[in-house]
Design a protein around this nucleic acid. Structure first.
Lengths: 325, 325
DNA sequence: TTGTACGCGTTATCAC
DNA sequence: GTGATAACGCGTACAA
């Protein structure tokens, strides 16, 4: 691979001159410029970004840590993060923590060693202490891990409220809420808070079921829902904390011989593709994934520019009513 | 951020010595070692990988170019690629081409400028010529773009054959095949070849429908399927080229008042989550996504080590029979 | 308008 | 055992 020296040699000028035409800085005669451009072309020269990064102390690299890209919510988030990063000239390093603390710690160290310009954390399995050593710009998605690390989240409480109120308004008298692990300090737990508040307020019977630590094992989902419906045949409403869970809720309800929405009403969360692939189509709470990704990049950029960023960044959710309610 | 010099200063030794304990090279007295380690600890020192990369001429970085991570197949592929890359100490740069030639070209140049150690191409919108300038190790997924760039693929012909033969064996007399754009030179077109061969051989009426260029617009899917079933009410079998298309086929069939599998049988492709979220569960052809990702990393590593790699790498597919057939 | 020389943070080579 | 120094490829004062 050709270096700036090779280009200089071929064009019969110094490396400085080559650097100048490369970066359009200072004065260069038109003739030298074409001569240099020609040499670059001929050699297929591409400036070495590694050397540039070293000099500039800036890598133009962002790290994206998430539990797992294969989960629809995170895959969409990754898509949007990449999209907005690209627009600003940044690259994205994909880091799946797999909810494994060792791997997450490893990745955080790796990102530090690679001098990334910012980190987006959509996963956190470590103790708070371990994040404090990070001195690069950082922003978390859906988790408040430290009181000076800004976070982005959609309005989880509002989402839970919208879902629960809809079910209540439709006349449900016994509603089950399926959520992740409440011990993880995640903002999505507020959906559960809202669910409890609403159902208590209206005197509706309620049930909260946690899927357990590994939120991504789908075989578990199926069993969980089947068992729930068997033990509580009088459930007439389900608020699931993801569209995938919602999809399984639909499947198991139908399997149990229930009609949707006549016998049981179901609300999902996220509004990812799955909500439209199933039948009946799933009523859900839409998370503003595009805005989430955009905001993540924006907050990193602001921190890099030493601008003041808000600690709390909450984006609105929206109820998307379809056929399951 | 502390450098090796700071550590050396603090430990009262030379940078060489620090480098030595860092890389466990040469002889160092136990005392110096602990002294240096202590200094590193205190300063929270992390070696600068950018400087290392510059010197070693190796970035430990792979580029993954795909149309879109938000598509389930690619999100799973990305997950596995990241998994195996991590095991070998490599990082993954996420590049969504969005099927946009300009962006893809941009990303290819960017990967070159960043001196990535290898590129995995799951997208190709450019002319063959534009890929030839790539002199880093490269491997493509599901596409043969040049006769000296190794490719990985699952056995598309076999997949199409399994699907078509199953439908025929179950008694379908008029089968529709929904595929992407056949003009793109993709190996998945072999599914269509197999479909045609099988249906012709058995004298079964057939229909091939292309979804058009932008394979990822789901609103189109819905209309397409609805229209197809309306214009050809006698279709009794559908072979869809993805599980998402399969899911829409199920939805539109039920909407048209057909029973599955009594009136119409449906086979999807990929075996991603969607095939289990729908009801009835979708019969599908499983792509070995994990093996695909593993092989991609392996082939890159082999090229880096100047080992001989096979040009053609075809992995077996598997028929997963569920409830739609 | 162009060239020389230094530094970015590491590691390899050769001295001591 | 340990230290000085050159080199990786580039950008930028400063000099010419």
């Amino acid at each position: 691979m050709a270096t700036i020296h090779d280009v200089a040699l071929k064009a019969g000028v110094s490396v400085t001159t080559v650097s100048r035409v490369l970066n359009n800085r200072g004065y260069i005669s038109e003739m030298t410029r074409t001569k240099v451009s020609g040499a670059m072309e001929e050699l297929g020269y591409q400036p070495n970004e590694i050397a540039r990064s070293l000099l500039r102390k800036q890598s133009n690299l962002f790290g994206l840590i998430i539990p797992n890209v294969s989960h629809p919510f995170f895959s969409q988030l990754a898509d949007r993060v990449e999209y907005y990063a690209y627009l600003e000239g940044y690259k994205v390093l994909l880091c799946n923590s797999q909810m494994d603390p060792d791997k997450e710690r490893d990745y955080i160290d790796m990102l530090k060693r690679n001098r990334v310009d910012g980190i987006i954390m959509g996963s956190h399995t470590l103790e708070v202490e371990e994040y404090r050593s990070l001195n690069s710009p950082i922003v978390t998605i859906d988790r408040k891990i430290h009181n000076n690390i800004p976070y982005i989240s959609s309005d989880n409480y509002r989402g839970g409220q919208l879902a629960a109120e809809l079910l209540v308004a439709k006349g449900c008298r016994k509603i089950a809420h399926i959520c992740g692990n409440l011990e993880l300090q995640m903002l999505s737990n507020q959906r559960t808070d809202a669910f409890l508040d609403v159902t208590i307020k209206h005197g509706v019977e309620r049930l909260v079921v946690e899927t357990g630590l590994n939120v991504f094992d789908e075989n578990k989902y199926e069993k969980l829902l089947g068992q729930l419906l068997q033990e509580h045949p009088d459930i007439d409403g389900i608020f699931a904390t993801s569209d995938i869970l919602g999809a399984y809720a639909i499947k198991e309800s139908l399997k149990a011989g229930k009609r949707i929405p006549e016998d049981i009403r179901i609300v999902g969360y996220d509004d990812v593709g799955a909500s439209r692939w199933v039948r009946p189509e799933l009523t859900t709470i839409r998370q503003p994934i595009d805005a989430l990704g955009k905001m993540a990049i924006k907050l990193l950029r602001m921190q890099m520019d030493d601008e003041l960023v808000a600690f709390e960044n909450i984006l609105p959710v929206e109820l998307i009513e379809r056929a399951t309610t």
